[in-house]
Amino acid sequence: MDKTVILKLEHITKNFGGLKAVDDVSLEVKKGQIQSLIGPNGAGKTTLFNIITRIYSKDSGSIHFTNHNLDRYKAHQLIKMGIARTFQNIQLFDEMNIWENVAIGSHIKMSNSPLDAILCTHNNKKWEKQAKEKAIDTLRFLKIDRLAYLYPKEISFGNKRLIELARALVSDPVLLLLDEPASGLNESETSKLLKIIFRIWEKGVTILLIEHDMNLVMNCSHSIAVMDGGKKIAQGMPSYIQNNKKVIKAYLGE
């Protein structure tokens, strides 16, 4: 397999009853790039994300991450391999405060055992302290560490999106899947997000981004894939996509 390709989808198909949500989609994500996935509502983008993260089973096709066949892994094993994601409809844990929410991202990286926890061992204190510090560091990276002790219901929608991002980042992902991170954000929040995405990318994280905001996508992507009606209809550099007739048709209609 090509070493520069980090995620390789081949002929992915998924039916919901009679509806072909994803229809024979192949996609390669290159290491160290920002790959975007755009398309009208119902094009199958989020379904594809859920297939990659093993929340949905696929009907056919294969997914490889580096040289691992993802069929052999369960949803909860992906984060250990370096795949982290955010959710389009925010999935924060309401009963935990912000730093605890973010610390969930490092759950699997910690090695204090339940017995350590029960006996309050030194090992337990060390790991718990580390997890908290790392969560707060990540919040600081996103410039929202002042929110650490608040609860999800006490913060703004834009900040909730950032917490989602922080929770994924804290796991030190190799590949970050962002599902419409700008939806519901205002203009200034979106431009802040753009800067953040670049800063994450600078750290060497490969990003697969689903997004509606064309401005954001055109400004940050190395490559853009376009989906419509479950099929991939085009792929290429932003300048190519902008002038592609099929894409314009899918977005604007005839």
Partner: peptide, 28 residues
Amino acid sequence: NLTKSRFGRALQAIKSKEIAAEAFGINV
């Protein structure tokens, strides 16, 4: 003590959003 550790956080994550918990490495 158990719930004041990462295990307690994992349990509460399961309580509020199972799918997100699973995506963050918790074998629900």
